[in-house]
Design a protein around this nucleic acid. Structure first.
Lengths: 225, 225
DNA sequence: AGGGAGAGTGTCCCCATGACACAAACTCTA
DNA sequence: TAGAGTTTGTGTCATGGGGACACTCTCCCT
């Protein structure tokens, strides 16, 4: 039914998406940023993002921007819209409304190269980011809060890890996201009580005592909401 | 700095707001709906909403639609954006993305008259709405869930009541929103423990034993988030 | 004066969470 | 190969919040 048309006031506002994409690296929560190659805010760091195209769903636009601006290696394990920023004056080019997304990239996706119109892309400490273009500092802030909520609600921490992992690794993800240390015994008690983890039987050897490997029980994948 | 201009692909998508406005009436949670006067979905019931205008913040657009389409008596006590709906095909007129808002109207705002392009406006049981236009049934669903979450997080129930109210009235609001009965003693215990209520000293007489009147302690207004 | 209607009140149990210290298993090096 | 170093793994107690549960109190109405 494309016979009806949009009223004239329907096309006056620019619609964009921005993506706060997170991954773990060196025991730290990192966020993926791009260095802008164009005005405004040329050479400033910003969240990857851009305008939504016709015939493109919001999450598709988010994925496309992530791919063309950063050349990430793997698919995001989680992608979720979390807030729409529409303040007047947030973009000097005019009225632009941005639907902000939160993405989680799995372990191993830490190498990025700039692409698209950007000068480059890199990972930064999510809790101590550099100065950001536009209102992206606010967006990042809100993204981290959402990530923290999702930690205890869904078990989004698992998306940061490979299929099989140890409990200390999982605890490390939680600590990196919450930006505070957790008690080992309480953490294990709580996580194992949830019943989403099952020991794989194997162990991982390293420097100290080998750690039990776990995997998620089937049918416990986070609904991408 | 309006010297920079939008890239061409920035204006291809229509941006709208929709508002799920709730109030209490006869002990029931009700949602404000309008009967559409135009195609598509003419004569169907829908959430009040429409296109965002240039120079208009998202929440301003939501307020404007509420006022022009429904002529509500009072200002909303709470207005919050909760999700942005952008599925392809959600509107037969083309690509329209809608930022959905949740509004709470205070006690006494139950009389509405249709305005704007609509045939009328009326309150409906929020948990048993009529068939709705577009994807508004989904939007309403999500709005109710958000309202329920805000009940225990912020104390949004107070926004449905006048400045002074009784505990049974407050419990009624909670029950209407959650759509299930609550235990009287546990409810009082929990609410009073939060420390946001203070007895006003007066009582309200009615059919049975008079009820203590309460008001919120100062400085406990919900941040409109 | 008695009945009806709604308001008000306290205890117990259970579960989830947080604080807290030591033993076990492996690697590495001397 | 023995000992030091390093990391994993484990249990108890105290506390607090939430849910189940029944009877009295106060007023109005007839």
């Amino acid at each position: 039914m494309g016979t009806l048309s949009l009223p004239p006031q329907a096309t006056q506002v620019g619609l964009a998406v921005d993506v706060a994409a997170f991954a773990m690296h060196a025991g730290e929560l990192r966020v993926l940023l791009v260095q802008r190659g164009e005005l405004p805010h040329a050479r400033d760091w910003a969240l990857p993002g851009g305008f939504v195209q016709v015939g493109e769903a919001l999450h598709e636009a988010a994925l496309r921007e992530l791919r063309t601006e950063t050349t990430v290696e793997l698919e995001p394990r989680h992608l979720e819209q979390f807030y729409t920023f529409g303040e007047l004056g947030r973009d000097p080019r005019g009225r632009i409304v941005s639907v902000a997304h939160l993405a989680v990239l799995p372990h191993g996706t830490v190498h990025v190269t700039g692409g698209g119109h950007t000068l480059g892309a890199a990972w930064f400490p999510a809790h101590r980011p550099p100065a950001l273009a536009f209102d992206h500092a606010q967006i990042l802030d809100r993204a981290i809060k959402r990530l923290q909520v999702r930690l205890e609600y869904a078990n989004l921490a698992l998306e940061f890890l490979p299929d099989t992992f140890t409990l200390p690794e999982l605890q490390g993800v939680h600590e990196a996201i919450l930006d505070r240390p957790l008690d080992k015994r309480n953490f294990r008690k709580r996580l194992l009580a949830q019943g989403v983890l099952v020991p794989s039987g194997e162990r991982r050897s390293g420097v100290g005592r080998p750690a039990q490997l776990y995997r998620r029980t089937k049918g416990t994948r986070t609904a991408a909401l």
